[in-house]
Amino acid sequence: MSDLYDLYQEMILDHSKKPRNRGSVEDATNQAHGHNPLCGDKIRVTVVLEGGVVKDLRFEGDGCAISTASASLMTESVKGRSREEVDRIFSTFHALVTGQKPDVPAEELGKLAVFSGVSEFPMRVKCATLSWHTLQAALDDASDPVSTE
């Protein structure tokens, strides 16, 4: 069971049960839908982007514990960040959950480092990255929904 506790760390369980920044922001400038066909999870991310900075964002939709916690922790970690910073955090996060060596020390990810256990569960990587792909689509203002497949 030890791998399981690495995957479902306390903070992940907490965020999955009590997600932060759930719902949609009023006056959103950007938004996108995401879909993980494998587990049927759907998510929508709404963002207020001002001068290239994420002023506010929220997410809505139901998903598994990993995807819900990931969306919740993502909203906390990117608020106030520039587009470039968001991209850098995601690429570091992506490396972490896929078991590659991140370019920057994992500590710089802050709370997001709790997702390190995902790398032992390749089937769950898409759950952890769905919200991030959706956020990127929102920042690109893509009109087509993103899909993890």
Partner: peptide
């Protein structure tokens, strides 16, 4: 509990 979590 989402089925995906149960399955894992």
């Amino acid at each position: 509990i989402h089925p995906h979590d149960a399955g894992t």
